[in-house]
Structures are given as structure tokens and as C-alpha cells.
Design a protein around this nucleic acid. Structure first.
Length: 586
DNA sequence: GCCGTTTTCGGCCCGACTGTTTTCAGTCG
């Protein structure tokens, strides 16, 4: 059973509890939902963790659920779950996937109309709604019937919250709406928050907060945005719209005096906020977007600055990228948060593709070596590493490959410091399926170092793939493993590697792992970065640019490093030119 | 059912909006 299926099962159990008796099972419901979230966020298969005896290390899974999981893996089913879900037709759990339909409504409809089949239930409900039968049900009405119909049709089109979009794209959408919001003259502050501010690689809803002295008018202005497909909801302080492109945008508006607490609240994550509020509650303080309420005196404290909000709880300010409730609150209480890396610490970029004709089997860049160097200067870099793909092996003789590399090197050297930016002679060399590098020894010798990466035969077992990568990395010139998991967001999962082994090897042999800043890669990703940092493995944040403008993407890579709690000292390209040169020769 | 810098028992975040309701249930984040 996959993690996705298990998470779904847990949600079904939670839903069953709330159908049976929401009050009585209140905490079981929360526990199973929490466990489902935990499983969903896992990057390792639960079944592997079970085999390795590490189930209890997952926060949100305690003794009881651990026992249920063991039963599930042994027998393929869980007696207790079957009892809890008894009498609830399977269609309920499918109908719940439709926005605005929760467990109660799904159960009411399913049982009243005797709908059971999970495959056909959505169409059956659609038909009932069209014929006006849902509206006659007690507790439903014309509006909720129309709502269900619309929700089903949007669900079928894949609109709204069913899709997650790339961080960079979400940023653009947010910028456009911010520009529009700022046309309303009484807006004081406005910013994208939520997962966008936390810089998660994929963003669901786009959350925007604003302060103004005229909230009602600002909400009216917001919903008149020209790209509105539908207004999802609208109240005095919040509103949500669905854009014609199918993105949901949530706006929350408060007075400028509350900007600090609004920022904190709407940035999340949910887990971070819940943990923070539980902590505050022990001090008789209740937190919300409106401020901090003292439960003893009833007095509400307002905050115009987020730093003050955290400070008044006795915490140092926590960078948004760290707010995932993975230990940051505890450290902030002791004022011991690590000083995580910043964009300004970056002194260069090692993963740069140019248009220099090295005749690779993969793609060339669009701009010249000189143009990329000019951009590097603009970015304030000290150095740039050129790493075109290796010349194709099938179309060239060994000598031709060596000559191509020499020619490219000549040009890189000629440009060294010409624009005030120093250069490194690198390459991005394929690791072949047998672990060998796709460049002859005589060519590798002529390089300062090489980036190595997998670009073919992705479907290998974990052990075999790990061996392949480690063999490739063993070459003394191989210093950086590019886009280590090979994932492409919204397109494909990466290949399977034993990262414990990779980390250990890298640390021992002075190799670095790349954090690829390209928006659909962002790989290594946060969780593995955190483990790499814990294991003292060096990282290199690179843009993988194939054109000048892509060199601006560095900030996304830095953001992932921050999400993984990396500090300046963990990052190779935060070192000076001389230090890098030395490290390459290690 | 989970969890621990007042606790291994007794707590468990906080609020928004909609629709069908005469005071609240359901859903969402």
C-alpha cells in the first residue's frame, strides 16, 4: 500500500468518526487527520519505515496508530477500521473529494438516495442535483444544490485547489494581483503570504494579506479584478476568488495596526501556528490574526510588526521558510535559531550553460559566455562556472571531444576577469548507466572540476542507481552532483537513491550536492537538504541557466536551502574564488 | 489518539464565511 492510499484511508477513518459522533470522537478525528497529513508529507514509503522499525519516529503517529499500521502491512486490512467504517457507503469518501462537500453532506446524500458505488457516485449526485432532488433534502436548499453542481463541474475540469502550481508561477500571479490591489489608494501594506512566503516549491491557493483603513471598499475592489472567473466567498475581512486560469486567491484585510499579527497568522504553516498557539495557551495567551489576547485580563495586544509578535511570546523572529513546526519554535524560544543562508551570501553560480558549440547530445544554452558573465557582474558575483553538457559521444571521436573541450576552455580562459568576474572551466558530464563519466580521461584532466548528473536510464533499482551515482562521483574531477533526485515537479518523481550512503560518501570525499534553483526542479528538496546539513555535507546552489534571464532564479534555490536550514558555511558558492579553487583541487 | 521545560494524565488553536437557519451546522484554512 502506498503512502497516498494510507493517507486516504486515515482520512476515511476520520470522516467515519465525524459521521458517527463528531463530539465523542473529536480528538480521534484530529489524530487521524494529523496522521494522514504526516503520511502525505513523507518522502519515504511507510512500508519501508515499517520494515526498518521506524514508524514511531513520525510525529503524529503514536502507539495505537502504529499498531494499526502493523496490522495493515501484515494482513492487508485493519479490523478496527472496518468497525469504524461499518455502515458508511464507500461513495461517501469519494464525494468528499468535491470541494464544499464534507463527511456530513456526503453521508446525508449517499444514505438518503442509496448511493453506494464509488465509481459512479459523482455522476449520480450530479444527476440528482440537476433534477432538483438535492434541494428538497432537509438542510439543503436551492443554493447548496447549485453549489454542488458547480463544484462537481469544476472538480471534473481540475480547477481550483486540485492543482498545485510552481512557486515561480504563483509568484507572478501574486505580483499581478498585488499591482492591482495597490491601485486602491487606501492600501497600506500588501504582500503574498502562505506557502508562497514560505517558498514551498508547489503552491496551492495564493494567499494575500493587506491592511487598509477602508476594508470593505478594498474587498469590493479585489473582487472586481478583471481575471475573476467566480467569487468563491466574500465577507467583511476576507474574500476568495477563482481566476480564469483556475487559481484560487484568498485575501485577508485588517487595519494597519494589526499587520504584524496578520503576517504571522496568514504565513502559517498551519502546523507552526497550531504549535505556537498551544504554547501560548499555556501562558494564558490566545493568538489570532487580530493579535495576542491575555485570557486572564481579557486585554488584546495589537502588533504592527511581526518581530514584535514573536518577541512578546519570548521567541526570536523565525524566517518564514522555517515555519513548518520541525523544531524552529523550540530553538526560537532559546534564541538559538541557526543563521540561515541569504541571497547576498552567494558569490557565484557553477551550473551555467552557454551557446558555445560543444555539440552536446542535450541542449545548449541561448547566450554566449560573455553575455552570461555580464549578467554575473550585474548580480555582483565574484565568479562563474561554465558547465555545458559534455559533447555527444555517439557523434564524435575521442579526439574530437577533447578538441571541443579545449576550444571551449580557451574561450572561458580568455574571458576570465574580462568583465570583472573570474571563471571556472567546468562541464556537466553525464553519469552513464555503468557509472562511468561520459568524457574521456584526457578531457576531464583539462577541467577545474565537473558537475555530474543522470540524464538517461532513470528506471533503475535503488541499490543499482546509488552504485551508479557513487561510481560517477568517485572520479577526482567530479565535485558536484547536479539535481540529485532528478524529479520534475508536476511531471515525474525522481529516481530512487540511498541518500544516507550518498551523504556519507560526499562528506568523506569532499563532494557537494546541488540545490538546483530551476523552478520545476528545486532539487535537492528541503527535507533532504536538512539531512545533508545535519550530516555536514556541502551544498552548491546553482541555477542551471540556459539563458541570461534564468540566472535570476538563484533566489528560489537559496529559498530551498533556507527551508532546509542551511547556513552560509554549508554552501560552496558562498566561498571566495580562492577558497573554491582550493576546494575543487581537494 | 497524541503528547510532555508546570503534566505519563489531562489537556487538546482560532477564526472565516455560507446557507439554511431563528441560533447554528458544515466546511475550509
Amino acid at each position: 500500500m502506498t503512502n497516498k492510499e494510507i493517507a486516504k484511508l486515515f482520512r476515511a477513518v476520520a470522516a467515519s468518526y465525524s459521521i458517527k459522533n463528531e463530539k465523542k470522537f473529536r480528538f480521534q478525528i484530529i489524530a487521524y487527520q494529523k496522521a494522514a497529513d504526516a503520511v502525505d508529507g513523507l518522502t519515504t514509503q511507510l512500508e519501508d519505515l515499517y520494515k526498518e522499525g521506524e514508524l514511531e519516529e513520525i510525529p503524529g503517529i503514536g502507539a495505537t496508530i502504529k499498531g494499526r499500521l502493523e496490522e495493515l502491512f501484515k494482513k492487508g486490512k485493519v479490523k478496527h477500521f472496518e468497525d469504524v467504517m461499518k455502515g458508511i457507503p464507500p461513495s461517501v469518501f469519494v464525494l468528499m473529494e468535491i470541494p464544499s462537500i464534507g463527511p456530513k453532506k456526503a453521508f446525508r446524500i449517499s444514505s438518503h438516495f442509496h448511493i453506494k458505488n464509488p465509481q459512479t457516485c459523482i455522476n449520480e449526485v450530479e444527476k440528482l442535483a440537476k433534477s432538483g432532488k438535492i434541494a428538497k433534502l432537509e438542510g439543503f436548499g436551492e443554493k447548496s444544490e447549485a453549489d454542488i453542481l458547480r463544484a462537481i463541474s469544476e472538480f471534473k475540469e481540475g480547477k481550483g485547489k486540485t492543482t498545485r502550481i510552481l512557486l515561480s508561477y504563483a509568484g507572478e500571479v501574486a505580483d499581478q494581483i498585488l499591482d492591482y490591489l495597490k491601485k486602491f489608494e487606501y492600501v497600506k501594506d500588501a504582500a503574498p503570504l502562505g506557502s508562497l512566503r514560505r517558498m514551498k516549491p508547489l503552491v496551492g491557493d495564493i494567499d494575500i494579506a493587506a491592511t487598509t483603513t477602508k476594508p470593505k471598499q478594498l474587498i469590493e475592489h479585489f473582487i472586481k479584478y478583471k481575471r475573476v472567473d467566480r467569487i468563491i466567498e466574500k465577507g467583511p475581512t476576507t474574500a476568495s476568488i477563482l481566476t480564469t486560469a483556475g487559481n484560487q486567491i484568498d485575501l485577508m484585510v485588517l487595519s494597519p495596526k494589526k499587520w504584524g499579527s496578520l503576517l504571522q497568522h496568514f504565513t502559517g504553516s498551519k502546523d507552526h501556528n497550531v504549535a505556537l498557539r498551544e504554547y501560548a495557551l499555556k501562558k494564558s495567551l490566545s493568538l489570532s490574526e487580530k493579535g495576542i489576547k491575555n485570557l486572564k485580563t481579557g486585554k488584546m495586544n495589537e502588533f504592527s510588526k511581526e518581530e514584535e509578535f514573536y518577541k512578546s511570546l519570548g521567541l526570536s523572529w523565525i524566517p518564514p521558510e522555517m515555519r513548518e513546526n520541525t523544531g524552529e519554535i523550540e530553538l526560537a524560544l532559546k534564541n538559538k535559531l541557526p543563521k540561515i543562508v541569504e541571497l547576498g551570501n552567494i558569490k557565484g553560480d557553477f551550473h551555467i550553460h552557454t551557446s558555445f558549440p560543444v555539440e552536446p547530445s542535450h541542449d545548449l544554452g541561448k547566450n554566449s559566455i560573455s553575455e552570461m558573465l555580464q549578467k554575473a557582474k550585474e548580480l555582483g558575483y565574484e565568479y562563474l562556472g561554465f558547465s555545458e553538457h559534455n559533447p555527444s559521444q555517439s557523434k564524435h571521436t575521442k579526439q574530437e571531444i577533447i578538441d571541443l573541450i579545449l576550444k571551449r576552455n580557451e574561450e572561458v580562459e580568455r574571458q576570465n576577469n574580462l568583465h570583472g568576474v573570474k571563471t571556472f572551466k567546468l562541464m556537466e558530464t553525464d553519469i552513464l548507466p555503468n557509472g562511468e563519466l561520459a568524457l574521456p580521461e584526457e578531457a576531464l584532466e583539462k577541467l577545474d572540476a565537473t558537475i555530474v548528473s543522470i540524464h538517461s536510464v532513470f528506471k533503475m533499482g535503488r541499490t543499482e542507481m546509488t552504485k551508479r551515482v557513487l561510481t560517477g562521483l568517485s572520479h577526482p574531477k567530479a565535485k558536484i552532483l547536479a539535481h540529485p533526485t532528478g524529479r520534475l515537479l508536476n511531471e515525474r518523481y525522481g529516481y530512487d537513491l540511498n541518500f544516507d550512503e550518498i551523504f556519507e560518501f560526499c562528506k568523506k570525499n569532499n563532494k557537494a550536492l546541488e540545490i538546483n534553483a530551476y523552478p520545476n526542479r528545486l532539487d535537492l528538496y528541503d527535507e533532504l537538504i536538512r539531512k545533508a546539513v545535519d550530516g555536514k555535507v556541502l551544498l552548491s546552489i546553482d541555477t542551471d541557466s540556459h539563458a541570461v534571464y534564468q540566472m535570476e532564479l538563484m533566489r528560489y534555490g537559496v529559498a530551498q536551502a533556507r527551508r532546509g536550514w542551511a547556513t552560509k558555511s554549508d554552501i560552496i558558492n558562498a566561498l571566495s574564488y580562492d577558497e573554491v579553487k582550493k576546494w575543487f583541487s581537494l
